[in-house]
Amino acid sequence: MKTFGRILIILTAFTVLGGLMMWVGNANGVNSPSFARNSGEAEFRPLQGDEDGQEGSRPPREVGEDHEGREGRGSFGGRWVFSLIKNVGVISVLVVAIVLPKSIIKKKRKAPVSPA
């Protein structure tokens, strides 16, 4: 019961925060397909892509923008390795930048003070 209540709190916080973000984003009209601030403005991009011609449908992907990786930017094999190295690299740099100075400071503090 306690766990269920906690799950409810987490999901409520997620929903409220997410709802707030959607409200702020949409209230400013920035989600219009044309990215126009004023909803009365003309659509710069012709309607296309969707079978029912629904307004705001996603524009077709550019060449090399395939998410399935067949014709992706660069080869499929190399791409994920590059992405992995980049992302793990960013995290590693941050870890080293914080952990290293911290351990140096800690060691200095631990080192016996030389007599004056």
Binding site: D66, H67, E68, G69, G72, R73, F76, R79, W80, S83, L84, N87
Partner: peptide, 9 residues
């Protein structure tokens, strides 16, 4: 998740 182009959408 950081590489949707490789995993597929």
């Amino acid at each position: 998740a950081m590489d949707p182009h490789s995993s597929g959408i």
